[in-house]
């Protein structure tokens, strides 16, 4: 008897989660509220059952997340008795940084990348779990499960530590840290299959519903609050839409869809002709932009 592929992925992720807890001083889980974070949290609850999670969750809040995401986050914290740290880049807020006024690149850099570095330094975390998968993007496909970051949080893609079997080198010197990706070997389809198999709660935005949207630069952007400027010639449409990926609402394109059940979402995914990152504005700025961002400390 050998294990099915989901069982193997599940066991591998649990092994990784436990290894970090057994070896790191101050681990943290970066919780982005999306479906991958939901799966990662579910696996962590299994790994340390019947105990509580032996580390806190941290959400780097850009202050531009969908309202539904924040309420879902707070529900999860309550349901599972989690320790949650919310970090916001206060200087960024004071300077009024936002995607509409400063553009996606500046906003992401200041409110997400710099905010993350601030938070890691502030709390002195030496290992941080992230829900990234290798099938998401081509530089991710090259990244180790235990991804070493220098003092200053930088990733050196040309000089990664060899990573053999399931023996992970967790050792670091002062000031250095490790980003750990327990879902490295999962694909988008695996994630959905697992959500289905395990009946995992996800943010309602993944399900189709009628929502107010504006068509802008070829994307459907949801009007989530009154900070969204409506430009001349734009009108607020009420369309049945859903999101394949979640982030800051002004930077996340919706897709028109009738998929309001998990089965329908998976069906839609199987028939899709575009990858999930297409709805993200940040990837298309420059070639190899993700690699560049990661070198600078982005997750």
């Amino acid at each position: 008897m050998s294990l099915s592929h989901l069982k193997r992925l599940e066991a591998e992720s649990i092994h990784i989660l436990r290894e970090v807890v057994a070896t790191a001083q101050t681990p943290v889980m970066l919780y982005s509220i999306g479906k991958d974070s939901a799966v990662m949290l579910h696996l962590a609850l299994k790994a340390f059952a019947p105990g509580k999670l032996p580390f806190p969750l941290m959400h780097v809040d850009t202050t531009w997340k969908f309202k539904d995401m924040i309420s879902f986050r707070d529900r999860m914290v309550k349901e599972h008795d989690l320790d949650l740290i919310v970090h916001i880049n206060k200087e960024g807020v004071q300077q009024g940084i936002g995607p509409f006024s400063h553009g996606s690149a500046t906003h992401t850099d200041i409110m997400k990348t710099i905010a993350l570095k601030q938070a890691l330094d502030k709390y002195g975390f030496d290992a941080a779990f992230g829900g990234a998968r290798r099938d998401e993007e081509k530089s991710r496909a090259k990244e180790r499960i235990f991804s070493f970051r220098s003092d200053g949080h930088q990733w050196d893609p040309k000089n990664q530590r060899p990573e053999l079997w399931n023996i992970y080198n967790c050792r670091i010197n002062k000031g250095e840290s490790i980003r750990v990706f327990p879902l490295s070997n999962w694909t988008e389809l695996d994630i959905w299959q697992y959500i289905h198999q395990e009946n995992i709660s996800i943010v309602p935005l993944y399900y189709a519903a009628e929502r107010p949207v504006v068509r802008r630069d070829g994307q459907l952007i949801m009007v989530d609050d009154d900070r969204m400027p409506i430009n001349k010639g734009e009108e607020i449409l009420h369309r049945k839409v859903r999101f394949r990926t979640l982030g800051c609402y002004p930077l996340t394109g919706a897709v028109e869809s009738d998929a309001d059940t998990l089965e329908a979402i998976i069906r839609e995914m199987l028939l899709s002709h575009t990858s999930e990152r297409e709805g993200r504005v940040i990837d298309k700025d420059v070639d190899a932009s993700m690699e560049q961002k990661k070198k600078e400390g982005y997750f």
Binding site: H5, R134, D135, E137, K138, S139, R140, A141, K142, P157, K158, Q160, S184, N185, T187, L189, D190, D287, A288, E291, Q292
Partner: peptide, 28 residues
Amino acid sequence: LVDGLAAEREQGITIDVAYRFFTTDKRK
């Protein structure tokens, strides 16, 4: 498709291992 690092694409060589995923009806 596979050479994902900027240095690899510029030099046309593979430097580090890349993981790719595919599924058929029989196997992942």
